[in-house]
């Protein structure tokens, strides 16, 4: 056992001694030299909080939670309104400008979707799905 290890054991022995309250003569001098320090470290610290601290904090926490709930509901409503407005705008754009871009878009899609491209896409998806499953299976085996 090196000197630091011995010193650590002495510190821990003094800690156990103070916690359990066994007789001081059971301790070796190295451990006994830490007893006063350990006792000082275990002396209670005065908690300077008001007597009704818990009640006041609980009331404030409730109030803040209610405010957060109201805020969250408002956010959800605003998001919903925004979604509806976006949908209306998209519909209006489709009605007004639809003729200009609908047919060219269909033609472009037809050109892009070729059997070889679809095959490549399916291959990519399969590799991706396999690479996600592999670590899970390895963990299960382990």
């Amino acid at each position: 056992m090196n000197p630091d290890e011995r010193e650590w054991q002495a510190q821990e022995a003094a800690t156990d001694f103070v916690r359990s309250g066994t007789a001081l003569h059971d301790l070796d001098p190295a451990s006994a030299s830490y007893v006063a320090l350990v006792r000082a470290l275990r002396e209670p610290i005065e908690v300077q909080l008001p007597a009704d601290f818990a009640r006041r904090v609980a009331l404030r926490a409730d109030a803040e939670a209610s405010a957060r709930a109201v805020e969250s509901r408002l956010e959800q409503r605003l998001l919903w309104i925004l979604g509806v407005l976006f949908g209306i705008a998209a519909l209006a754009a489709a009605v007004i400008y639809g003729g200009n871009w609908l047919q060219p878009s269909i033609d472009l899609t037809r050109q892009l979707i070729k059997p070889s491209l679809l095959l490549s896409l399916a291959g990519c998806l399969a590799v991706s799905a396999f690479s996600q499953q592999l670590p899970r299976a390895t963990r299960r085996d382990a």
Partner: peptide, 30 residues
Amino acid sequence: FERLVRDYQKLCWHVIQRMVGHVEDTRELC
């Protein structure tokens, strides 16, 4: 929640008071 605060306010005070060392700040941080 009031009971939770009562149960752990002493521990909370120990941690914060030892870190901060200032009574008023410790109260606010608790």
